[in-house]
Structures are given as structure tokens and as C-alpha cells.
Nucleic acid binder design. Structure first.
Lengths: 336, 336
DNA sequence: CCCAGAACGCAAAACGTTTTGTAGTGTGCC
DNA sequence: GGCACACTACAAAACGTTTTGCGTTCTGGG
């Protein structure tokens, strides 16, 4: 059992008594081959365990059948899920996914992108970054396809795949109203005007409007997207003349901070006041009571991005940029 | 700014007024080139942004300069760190790392390995699996280099990089016994027979034996290396006729799960029952109480594995199998 | 001044595919 | 029975490198 014993297409052809062309056609299906010949060739391919050499194929076709994924932090489960989703789809279509971590804040991103472009990735999925126009052009400039995970479509080249923030929050608040029967629902936002706070607030308003509940001005506060922000926000809302029976927070950190305040004051969650977060960060399931929140459909985003890329590549599709928006999923735990 | 405008080695040669051979020699350094010529060629390479086409190079050299990493679960931060460590080293040496997830328990592993071998990886790092001999031969049979992350050296082909699991767990349990005075110490393992569960269990047994404590059969359970596994395992152990005063878990996820169960039942940690984990993943310091655990040098393991592989490849080294053992460190926090 | 040897650069082959133009073989219709 | 046409299979070129054998140009010593 020594190395270097890989069958070549010529070996297959010889063994099957046909030319290499025919073998290639059997594999690619680009020209018809008689059923008998096809069967014979396929049998030989299987018996010899033949697999085309990707370097040779790539050299000829100018395609590597490889997609790159660049994320700021692989230890973040959101990004890991992204990778798994992509891999799931690519492997099934005989593509490969290469995952690279390029930490935020540093010269890493351009270096990693250059590497991937040099490696002739067919397409690149760029994670949630504040990528500069220069970074993006580095990719598309060499003909590499691009999918961005967030940001407005018109902010740069390539397609966009993202989650539906407005709808996600709407569904969460709907859950509070319809399933759980809460009526006086407050909102703790992050810095006012910073996305995705605005979109999430809109989802909250939509759901209340839909349920015929009014939006109590004294139950909406804007603080910051941090645990401390949540502490302060919750304290402010509890001081309202008619206090809320549920607190919807713009993200999980805020919710965890709010939880701190309530625990400190001996308020029972969710008995007296319910709490919800957003993002489903790791800590959301670690705190007590575990946080009801909204999950970013990371795996599905990865799948979609891979599908878009492969479809554009296989169809040689250079049509206008597309945007895919995926539904969030409400994760019901103990806090609401 | 249209695609397909990548410089070829011929373009560089023409621009620099030399032959392609010379350019190649400048790049590889395989034959001396006069300083003047070298400087001129390098300038042109830089100016044109030339990067050799990996397919063409791979076809000629029969090397892809690509290493594969196969792990059972990318969402596990230990594995993510592994990947980051490999990437760190490989990128610096102009190698690429391809990370693949192949979940435990299913037909995934052979399929993923076949993919990677078909893609002509130069080397593969196989994460912590109960890989069969057949799986391993699938890799080495085609000349692909292998590094295993655990298991005895003689259990199969390839080199081994691992942390000192037995010693790590022994030191941790010693700490419980000697510093903290716990006597009835239970053990929650992952899937039985899957490493590094066995080694960790042995460290646990060694420490108990050394302290003259007996190993209570009814205080050892095997579940799975997940949070849910920990929840279930802890519930089982608490039901013992004489419950434990400490729970040693085979990894941090299990410990966090065990913590869930104890919190739910109002058991004070570490007052009534102490808990320990293993790996020191990010979450270990986020939970409350913060987890006493053992630091698994995941990133360093990834680095070592990549270094071994690249060294063997670059030196065409087929010498006897090597084993690299990396030191662990007990991290004392609140839970024990 | 000439020659040996070192230093350097070139042309051409090879790597394993895919793809295109073309030759060969049946088959059905007139 | 001959011809056109579809259907198949083949030979050869191309993809962009690396590498080897060889020719050329210097350099310094006799």
C-alpha cells in the first residue's frame, strides 16, 4: 500500500477500451455516449476509484470548484454555523469550502482576501464586516464572485444574503402577545439610530399595532447595546407609573443587563415581568432564566450564499445583484 | 475593472525582458539568479501583482500546498481554535487550510475523507475521532500525510499531536482531593470509547487511586460530549443512593450542562457539589459560577500539527512516526 | 592574450485534464 | 442499392506552470 498509485483518465480509457475523450464525456455529459459504453466506463471508474485530478481540471477549465468564506471569528458559533451550512451545500455539488478567519481591527482582512484570490477561489462569501470598497474591489476585480452577508445591496458589488430583522422582532413580539398574553410591553433599545436597532424597533411597533395595542411612549427607552445599557434601561422602565409586564430588548446583552436589574430587585422572571433578547448569543442560554430570543438562521444563510454562488458560476450568470432575505427563528426559553 | 485580467508568468518574463525559466527561478530560488535580474523580476512581479496559478503549479509539482482539517463539530470552540491555529501557520508558509466538519456517528467521516483525498490534500489533520483503521488507510493509502490528534501512536499510520490528557485530568482531580478535600467524586464522560474521553477517565482513576479513594461505579456515566449530555449525566448521578460531592466532567460543554441541572434543582455550586470541566473553552469563564477546568492548548495543537505536516512535506521526510505532547494547565475558578 | 570553469539564461518537455474538429459507423429513406 | 444524416468515438491542442539539459557569457589565472 504505497503512495502515488492514483488512476489517471488514460488508465480508465485503456481499461475500458475507449479514448480519454469518451471517458471525459461520460463524466461531464457534455456529449452523448451510448448506454453500453457509458456503463462500461462507469464500471471501470468505480473499480479503479478514479477521481479527476483537480489541478489538471482546474488548469484546463479555469475553475477551482472552491468557495471561500471569510469570518471575523471562527469561535463565534454564528460563524461556525455559517461554515457548516456552506459546506453542506458545496460538498453535495462537488465544490469545496475554505474557511478563513480574519479578525476585525487589523490588517488581516486584505491579506486574507488576497490569499483567497491568489488561490483562485471561484467565489467568496464575506462575513459581517465593515469592509471597505477597496476590499470588495480586490475580490470582484479579479473576476471572483462575491456574496456579502449584510449591508445594503447598493453599498458594493456582489449579492447579499441577510436575515429579516423587522420580521424577526415582529414574530417575537407576536409570540409575547398571542401565546403568552402580555399587554404592556416595553422596549429597551441600544444607541438610537444605530442599526439594527431601528429595524428591530420597527418590528416591535408593527407587532403591537397589529395586535391593536398602543405603543406606550413611556415604555420605550434608548440606551446602549451593552449589559450596562440593559441595567439602566430596565431601571427606567420599572419606574414608570404603570410598569410593563414584558421587556423587549434590542439584543441579548441588553436583556442580560435587564435581567440583572430585575434579579437585584427580586422581581420574578417571567412570572412578574417577561424578558426577551435578540441574536441568541452563547450567553443567552447560559443565564438564568435562559433567555427567549431570536436566532439568526446562520446555517441557512451559509446554505443560501453557497447556492447563489454555485448557481451563478454554473450558469455563467452575470445578471444584476440579488438580495436574499431569510427568516429569523424565535427561540423560546424560560424568560418569556 | 473586468475579470480575467490576471498576469501570467510569461507576461512577467516579457515585461522584465527575461525568460519564464528565470522568473520561475527567482520565485523558487532553485537556481542562482544574478542580483540585478532578480531585482528587476521582483519589481515586475510586484507591479503586476503576479501570483502563480495554483492549478498549473499543482499539476506540475503534484502538490496542492493545502492541508485538510477534519473535526466532528465546528461549533465546539476547541475545534475552532484548532482551525485557527493551523491557519495561522499555514498562511504564513503559503499553504492553505481546509476545514471540514464530519459529525460523529454516521457515514460522514469516510465521505469527507474521500473528498479531501480526491482533492489531493498534501496532508490531513484528523481531529478527535474513533477513526477506524480503514479510515486511516483511506488517507495514507494514497500518499497523503496524516496527523492524528490523539490516540496511541501505534494505533495507526501518521504522526500524533496531543495534549497530555491523562496528566491534565490527574492534576485536576488531585486539586479537588488535596486542595479542596472532596471525597465522593463522580465522572461524566462523553460517548464511551471516543477519545479523549478514555484518557481523561484514566487520569481521573489514577488520581483517585493515588489518593486511596475508590472509584464508585455508580458515579460514572457515559453520555455525549454536549451540553445535553451533561444535563442528562448530572441528573443520573444525582439520583445515586449516595450522591457525589464533586462532578468531574469530560469536557466543558458537559460541565455546563451539569451546571444547568444543578441550578434547576437548586443545588449550590460549589457549596454542595463541585463541578469541573475540561478544555477551557470561552464559555467556561462566562457561566456562573465560572468553571474550574483544564486548559487544552487547542491553538497550539493546531499550530504543531500544521508545522509537522509542512516540515515532512517540504523535506520529503518519510521517517518514523513522531508524537508531540503539549502541556496542559489547570485553571482554577469558582466551581471547584 | 587565451582558455578553463563558473555563473547565468534559454528552449522544450511534461504534468492530467477538457474541448473542438473530424473521421468513422450504422440506420432509414428514397 | 445508394445517400444523407444522426450518432459515436478519436486525435490533438490548449491550459500555466516547473524542471532539465544545454548554450552563452563573463571572470580570472596562466
Amino acid at each position: 500500500m504505497h503512495g502515488g498509485c492514483r488512476a489517471k483518465i488514460g488508465d480508465v480509457a485503456a481499461e475500458a477500451g475507449v479514448s480519454v475523450t469518451t471517458v471525459s464525456h461520460v463524466i461531464s455529459g457534455r456529449r452523448p455516449v451510448s448506454a453500453a459504453t457509458r456503463a462500461r466506463v462507469e464500471e471501470v471508474i468505480h473499480r479503479l476509484g478514479y477521481q479527476a485530478d483537480p489541478s489538471a481540471r482546474g488548469l484546463r477549465t479555469q475553475r477551482t470548484r472552491t468557495l471561500g468564506l471569510v469570518v471575523p471569528d471562527l469561535a463565534n458559533p454564528f460563524n461556525a454555523e455559517l461554515a457548516v451550512g456552506m459546506q453542506e451545500i458545496t460538498l453535495a455539488h462537488d465544490y469545496l469550502t475554505v474557511v478563513c478567519e480574519a479578525p476585525l481591527g487589523g490588517p488581516y482582512l486584505p491579506a486574507v482576501l488576497r490569499q483567497l484570490v491568489a488561490r483562485r477561489m471561484d467565489g467568496i462569501v464575506l462575513g459581517r464586516y465593515g469592509a471597505t470598497r477597496r476590499d470588495l474591489d480586490l475580490i470582484t476585480g479579479s473576476g471572483t464572485r462575491l456574496v456579502r452577508l449584510g449591508g445594503p445591496l447598493e453599498a458594493g458589488p456582489g449579492d447579499v444574503v441577510r436575515a429579516a430583522e423587522v420580521e424577526g422582532m415582529r414574530d417575537l413580539v407576536r409570540h409575547l402577545v398571542k401565546e403568552r398574553g402580555y399587554r404592556r410591553i416595553g422596549f429597551i433599545g441600544g444607541e438610537e439610530g444605530v442599526e439594527p436597532g431601528g429595524e428591530r424597533f420597527q418590528g416591535y411597533r408593527d407587532a403591537l399595532a397589529e395586535a391593536g395595542l398602543d405603543i406606550p411612549d413611556d415604555l420605550v427607552v434608548w440606551t446602549s447595546f451593552t449589559r450596562d445599557g440593559g441595567r439602566i434601561g430596565a431601571a427606567r422602565l420599572l419606574a414608570a407609573t404603570e410598569p410593563p409586564d414584558a421587556l423587549v430588548c434590542a439584543n441579548d446583552l441588553i436583556a442580560i443587563g435587564a435581567l440583572d436589574t430585575l434579579r437585584e430587585r427580586g422581581v420574578d422572571v417571567p412570572g412578574q415581568v417577561a424578558i426577551t433578547g435578540y441574536d441568541n448569543i452563547e450567553a443567552a442560554s447560559l443565564v438564568s432564566p435562559a433567555l427567549t430570543t431570536v436566532l439568526n438562521p446562520a446555517r441557512e444563510i451559509g446554505r443560501s450564499a453557497a447556492r447563489i454562488l454555485m448557481q451563478r458560476l454554473d450558469d455563467d450568470d452575470h445578471g444584476p445583484a440579488r438580495e436574499v432575505v431569510l427568516a429569523h427563528r424565535v427561540v423560546t426559553r424560560e424568560s418569556a
